[in-house]
C-alpha cells in the first residue's frame, strides 16, 4: 500500500536526484531544524549507499540553541557529510552589514552571509527545507526557484514548472533554490519523523524551562534573552515548534514528549507554527515576500 508519505518521500528524492544531475555545484542548507533534518535524511536515501554528492552548509547567526548545534554535528557525522559554516558574526565583523547591537535581530543579515557564501563557493543550486504551507509568499514559489546574479527572487516572473520536468540550467553567477519539501505540511513532517524514528534536537520535545511571556510568545531566559523590568520568570513545560535564532524563537506550552505525542498535538493545533513561535515573521503581511525577494531562504 502506497500512502501520502511514500509519495511525498518519493517526490523529494526525485527532486534531489534531478538537481544533482543537472547542476554542477549544489549545496544543502542545514539549520538543524526539523525540516532540514528531514531533508538531510531524504538526501541520504536518494544517494545511498554513496556519500552525499554535495556539502551541507549552516548559516550561523551566532544565536544558536546549544542542543541544535549538538544535533547539527551529530547529523553531519552520521551522513559523513562535509560541513561548511558561514558566519553572520564574520559578515558583521567585515563591515558588510551593520551590527544590530547586543542581541539585536540578525535575521536579515543572514541573507548577506548566505549570498556571499553561495558566490564564494560558486554554488549553482541550494537545497532548502522550506514548505509552502509555512507562509503565503512561500505558497507561491516554484520547487526549483530561480535567483538572478544578485540572488533576487522575482515572484512576478517565475519560470513555468510543468509536470516533474525540473530544469536546472542557469548562467554563470545565477543560482537555483530547490525545495524538495514544498508539498509537505507540518503534520506530514512529524508523521514522517515518527515513521522513520528520526533523531532531532531535544528542544523539539517537551521539557521544563525558565521562560517569560513577552509579546504573546514564551521566550527562554538565558544567554540570548534577558529579563526586562517587570517580567516574571516561570518554569513551564515547553517545546519548540520551530528552531530559529534563540533570541527570536518562542517555545509553546506542551507536554508532548515523544514523536507520536507531537503528531497528535500538531494535528489539533489552532495556531500556525510560524505565528506561534517566530518574532521575525510578525512585522507585516509581506515580511516573508520582501525577505525572499532579497535572497532569503
Amino acid at each position: 500500500m502506497t500512502d501520502h508519505l511514500d509519495l511525498l518521500e518519493s517526490h523529494a528524492i526525485f527532486i534531489l536526484r534531478e538537481v544533482v544531475a543537472e547542476c554542477e555545484r549544489p549545496v544543502l542548507l542545514f539549520s538543524g531544524g526539523k525540516d532540514s533534518a528531514v531533508l538531510l535524511h531524504l538526501a541520504g536515501k536518494a544517494f545511498a549507499p554513496a556519500a552525499l554528492p554535495f556539502p551541507v552548509m549552516h548559516i550561523d547567526t551566532g544565536y544558536n540553541f546549544p542542543e541544535v548545534l549538538e544535533f547539527r554535528d551529530r547529523a553531519v557525522a552520521r551522513h559523513d557529510a562535509r560541513l561548511i559554516v558561514a558566519s553572520v558574526e564574520e559578515t558583521i565583523r567585515q563591515g558588510k552589514a551593520a551590527d544590530p547591537g547586543h542581541l539585536g535581530s540578525r535575521n536579515r543579515i543572514q541573507t548577506t552571509t548566505l549570498l556571499d557564501a553561495i558566490t564564494e563557493n560558486r554554488f549553482d543550486a541550494a537545497f532548502g527545507g522550506a514548505r509552502r504551507d509555512e507562509d503565503k509568499a512561500r505558497a507561491k514559489e516554484r520547487i526549483l526557484s530561480f535567483r538572478d546574479a544578485f540572488g533576487q527572487w522575482d515572484p512576478k516572473a517565475q519560470r513555468p514548472e510543468l509536470w516533474q520536468l525540473y530544469h536546472g540550467k542557469v548562467n554563470e553567477g545565477e543560482h537555483l533554490r530547490a525545495f524538495p519539501l514544498s508539498d509537505w505540511t507540518e503534520l506530514d513532517i512529524w508523521q514522517y519523523i515518527e515513521r522513520e524514528e528520526m533523531d532531532l534536537p531535544s528542544i523539539y520535545f517537551a521539557h521544563e524551562r525558565d521562560v517569560v511571556l513577552r509579546d504573546g510568545m514564551w521566550l527562554a531566559i538565558g544567554d540570548f534573552v534577558e529579563l526586562r523590568d517587570g517580567e516574571v520568570v516561570e518554569v513551564r513545560s515547553v517545546r519548540y515548534r520551530t528552531v530559529g535564532d534563540a533570541n527570536l524563537t518562542g517555545a509553546v506550552l506542551s507536554d508532548a514528549a515523544t514523536r507520536s505525542d507531537i503528531v497528535a498535538e500538531v494535528a489539533l493545533a489552532n495556531v500556525s507554527e510560524r505565528g506561534a513561535t517566530r518574532g521575525d515573521d510578525k512585522f507585516s503581511e509581506s515580511a516573508m515576500e520582501d525577505r525572499k525577494r532579497e535572497g532569503y531562504f
Binding site: 503565503k136 507561491k140 505540511t185 503534520l187 503581511e285 515576500e289
Partner: peptide, 23 residues
C-alpha cells in the same frame, strides 16, 4: 487566503499559482 503576493493583493487578481493543503 490564497493571494500571497503584494501585487496580487493590491490589484485583486491572482498572478501565480498558490499551493494550499487540506486533508
Amino acid at each position: 487566503v490564497t493571494d500571497g503576493l503584494r501585487a496580487e493583493r493590491e490589484q485583486g487578481i491572482t498572478i501565480d499559482v498558490a499551493y494550499r493543503y487540506a486533508s
